[in-house]
């Protein structure tokens, strides 16, 4: 349902800083996929998300969502289909607004009109939604979000993001800024929401174990390429060691071909 065709992205073209951050990448995300993405710093993982969500436009190539060409459609219009969570917990919520106001903004995607949807039944609904987080947030609807801890904020962001049941959930190291306990809580919630609501998701992580434990498909990126794409049984059989080995193998292969090139 989401396809990237031969996507390339060049930053600062024609300058000394020219940087090919995405090199002819093609990818088809199938409905129901839960894809984990690993790769070293600067591999292009976030850039991939930026290209999918529309906060960046590709230099060449085509992005389609539900078979519709979205290559030049701005981020806010693609947001109808896409829910995105960042590493920084402060990016998902408005700190100096109350919980309930934050939730109003997220409960429906798209332009909001002059209507007052925040009423008693809506509050009740928000409270019901907040209960499963088991953080007591259902009693704090009027508190400013800025008063919450990082873990609470990220859990809230996750909840608010799935409130609109996006067709694709993009998670960019969304637990990396949290302590291990909170990271685990948010990760468990992520899994739970994805299963319960049948979401399609992509999750960037630097934790190889998480990449293996979660999801049905794993991508490894390097220097703007997807260098590994495994799914199904093959993914299930992956171990951290095997993954690390694979990474080095591919790196070495690349090295070898480079040497070959030098020789010839």
């Amino acid at each position: 349902m989401i396809t990237l065709e031969s996507i390339s992205k060049v930053f600062h073209p024609g300058t000394v800083n020219e940087n090919l951050a995405m090199d002819n990448v093609s990818l088809k995300v199938n409905p129901g996929d839960f894809i984990t993405i690993v790769g070293s710093n600067g591999a292009g993982k976030t850039t991939l998300f930026n290209l999918i969500s529309g906060s960046l436009f590709p230099s060449t190539g085509k992005v389609s969502i539900h078979d519709k060409d979205m290559t030049r459609i701005p981020e806010y219009r693609r947001a109808k289909f896409i829910g995105r969570i960042f590493q920084d917990p402060t990016l998902g919520t408005a700190a100096n607004m109350s919980l309930e106001d934050n939730m109003v903004i997220c409960s429906k995607k798209g332009f909001k009109g002059i209507k007052m949807s925040l009423n008693a039944s809506k509050r009740k609904f928000f409270q019901e939604e907040l209960k499963p987080l088991e953080m007591g947030l259902e009693n704090r609807l009027k508190d400013n979000v800025g008063l919450l801890s990082g873990g609470q904020r990220q859990a809230l962001t996750l909840l608010m993001t799935v409130l609109s049941r996006p067709d694709l959930l993009l998670l960019d190291e969304h637990t990396a800024a949290l302590d291990p306990r909170n990271a685990q809580i948010v990760l468990d919630l992520t899994q739970q929401f994805i299963t319960d609501y049948n979401l399609t998701a992509m999750m960037i992580t630097h934790n190889m174990k998480h990449a293996i434990d979660y999801g049905n498909r794993l991508l490894m990126m390097d220097k703007g390429h997807i260098i590994l794409d495994v799914s199904g049984e093959e993914k299930k059989r992956l171990t951290v060691d095997a993954l690390v080995k694979k990474f080095h193998e591919i790196k070495k292969e690349e090295y070898a071909t480079d040497e070959d090139l030098l020789v010839t």
Partner: peptide
């Protein structure tokens, strides 16, 4: 006050705080 209680008003209220959040939720800042 009434305007800033509407969905539009609440959304506008978040703009100065977090423009990315507005965009992520499908509203053109």
């Amino acid at each position: 006050d009434l305007f800033f209680r509407t969905d539009l008003g609440i959304t506008m209220g978040a703009l100065g705080n977090n423009e990315q959040m507005i965009t992520t939720n499908g509203v053109n800042p």
